[in-house]
Nucleic acid binder design. Structure first.
Lengths: 343, 343
DNA sequence: TTTAGCACTCAGTATGTAAGAGTGCTAACA
DNA sequence: TGTTAGCACTCTTACATACTGAGTGCTAAA
């Protein structure tokens, strides 16, 4: 059976009051915030009904009520009002991240910082993934008598560098030869296929040069490897210490989870349009049993590229936070698209 | 008046027992661990004496005793035995950090990770500072039709890159001109003097080229700026959650301090030979009132370059930790010296 | 369908008591 | 003179008991 309008209003009021105060809300105090006049007894009946449906629960018999996960879900999906975000705020946000928009990694790191300080939760962002990219160019630059740097550029717009060392003096001549051989063999090759074995066979195919060029090739392989992994930027974990709903044990579990980039990445990887809210158990991760995660994936051009997210207690101002995460994700996408389409 | 040998032994035993158990140590349990036979009453008298000298204190009248800051200081400076570190351990440590020894930033980041996981405290490291470095070379590499990358190499061995964008198509010709002009003007210039004003006047002096080259010069300035700051790598803050001596309030203060790189840097900047232990109030920082910091600065060649450190509760196994920090700092210095003297 | 009234439940707080650990002091001992 | 045994004293910790207040569910009347 569907919720009546009055029940919806009461559920929303409970959620909002609980978010605001952190105390279980009782029938009497709730009455005062409602925009229609009924007695506390009536409200009690309705609340009891909402409890039966699994939308509210009581910490103990004689306490007020608290939203359940399901209650939050209904609130977020159907009842919540989403306050817009003002133009001024948008400009402010953009002004904070713009200075680091010249480099994807710096940008996403900056975004995590901004997000953490704006929301007072822990913030995560992932740099654009380059798994399906191919090598666009490899540059070589001498850095000292016996060292040089390879700079790998990929179709995903990432750029990674690596220094290598030779046992002989590097001349411009040698560098030119290296450059020609490497680019000849590697342009258009997917970075994912640059395995140690591949590099070995490649070196072998170069005859006399094999030994000389191998350290350069190893450097290319290292850079390719690095270009594939999307880095995870984490910020504001400290903020979580301020929420009384998280005890020591709780915090440890969450922090431990946050320190495992690969799992974090997996959690954020599910595609979503605009914003996704993952409430407690929905994450299927015991560590996040009492937390909620707000994720938004960003795109470069029209290609899904990475994610930004915040993690905090289930009791948070969803409307406010979602707007901000959504806006920030759009901004990041726009800036990166511009950065990579510069050519 | 000096401490008698027996008093020294008792102080050391109290510190060690307290470090091991975390409980205030009483006269009776202490008796059992001493290597000479006296009654608990005698021990009580000596402990009372040590309390009068400010080396021990009681949480409350009827509790055992706990070392004071001064007590720890005496223990560390004069009583502590420092267990060596085995060759096997040394090899293990080196094997963990060697893979990232190709890049100073990666290396120091790896060191912080290793240190945190070895000690179970929060670990910090700073990358080599390049404040007094001069520009050794600037390389230019085209990265797309209208973008290129400047690579700045300094006498401190750091290498920073930055992408810049032009409003016109970049030809090899133009790049060659840029290269010549930039290197002509900038080689040997201290990075510290590359201010926006300096760059402006430099551009102005280039006549017709001024407008075209300005974005490249700005990129150089950005890279120079970045090469000066020593980055702070932080790891294992989570570990601090596991020490019962840190309460919520405590933790917040420490974490907040850890999140301010500049102050952290300042704390670690005081030169020291080998290892320095900063106990609680000695740091003159209220945030670290109950923590202790073990710092060791590393050198590149013979020049002091950066620091590695751990931060934890005052109750820690100093001997063990100091050995490890010291060894790691030596390893880092050796690896970086090698990396930078490759030419 | 709504409301007033009432009995009931339960967390939180205060109070009292008992146990236990450890001290300081005193007086006897080597 | 240094060392030890004994003892009274202090203070934390744990546990039991009683009280208070917020909030509920139910019933009966409007």
């Amino acid at each position: 059976m569907e919720l009546t309008v009055r029940q919806q209003k009461i559920l929303a009021a409970v959620v909002e009051l609980y978010i605001a105060t952190g105390e279980p809300v009782g029938s009497k105090s709730l009455c005062e915030t409602l925009d229609f006049n009924v007695s506390s007894a009536t409200v009690r009946n309705e609340m009891s009904n909402l409890s039966d449906r699994g939308l509210l629960e009581q910490p103990h018999t004689s306490a007020g009520r608290v939203p359940t996960e399901k209650g939050y879900r209904v609130y977020i999906d159907r009842l919540m009002k989403r306050p817009g975000i003002t133009g001024e705020e948008k400009r402010y946000i953009d002004s904070l991240i713009l200075p680091s928009a010249y480099d994807p990694e710096k940008l996403l790191d900056g975004v995590a910082k901004v997000l953490a300080s704006m929301t007072k939760f822990a913030a995560v962002s992932t740099t654009p993934s380059g798994e399906s990219a191919v090598i666009r160019a490899v540059q070589l630059v001498q850095t000292s008598r016996r060292t040089a740097m390879v700079i790998l550029m990929t179709s995903a717009g990432t750029m990674k560098s690596r220094v290598f060392h030779c046992d002989f003096d590097i001349t411009p001549e040698i560098l030119r030869v290296f450059f020609r051989m490497i680019n000849e063999k590697l342009i258009g090759v997917p970075v994912a296929s640059i395995t140690p074995a591949y590099i070995q066979s490649l070196a072998a195919s170069m005859g006399d040069m094999a030994i000389m060029i191998s350290s350069a090739l190893m450097a290319v392989a290292g850079a390719a490897q690095e270009s594939m992994q999307s880095e995870v930027c984490l910020n504001g974990e400290i903020n979580l210490l301020f929420y009384p709903e998280f005890g020591q044990e709780e915090l440890r579990r969450i922090m431990d989870f946050l320190s495992r980039p690969s799992e974090l990445c997996r959690l954020l990887s599910q595609p979503n349009n605009k914003v996704r809210v993952i409430l407690g158990q929905e994450s299927r991760r015991p560590e996040l049993r009492d937390s909620s995660v707000i994720v938004s994936r960003y795109s470069i051009g029209s290609r899904d590229a990475g994610a930004i997210a915040i993690i905090g207690p289930m009791r948070m101002n969803y409307g406010r936070i979602i707007s901000r995460v959504e806006y920030l994700s759009g901004s990041v996408g726009r800036m990166l698209t511009e950065l990579m389409n510069m050519e």
